[in-house]
């Protein structure tokens, strides 16, 4: 039962990643690409936590936390750059 639900959730997540990547490639302006990057960061965080549950490795949660912090800082820096303040 749990296996099936995990597979369905992973399918939904990968479809979401697919559409976000499409927007990342198509996006007409730099801001659109950054929005897609922000979404990808959040989805990847959730994916890492789910994978840590599937493989039963506690350490992957730390990886997700560090990835989220770095992605957040990266998006803020890109936003400052787009604003022209950097």
């Amino acid at each position: 039962m749990l296996n099936i639900i995990i597979y369905i959730t992973l399918g939904f997540m990968f479809t979401g990643i697919f559409f976000s990547t499409l927007r990342f490639i198509l996006g007409p302006t730099a801001a659109d690409r950054t929005v897609a990057l922000d979404t990808l960061t959040t989805i990847a965080m959730a994916l890492l936590v789910l994978l840590s549950f599937v493989y039963n490795r506690f350490i992957y949660i730390d990886v997700a936390l560090v990835y989220g912090v770095l992605g957040f800082i990266g998006v803020l820096v890109i936003a400052r750059y787009l604003e022209g303040a950097l």
């Binding site: 959730t9 399918g11 939904f12 997540m13 979401g16 697919f18 559409f19 976000s20 927007r23 979404t39």
Partner: peptide, 17 residues
Amino acid sequence: LLLIGGIFLFLGGLGIF
């Protein structure tokens, strides 16, 4: 909760597209 989360992540990607 897991299933709901998966659906909303998918909707986020679709909405961005």
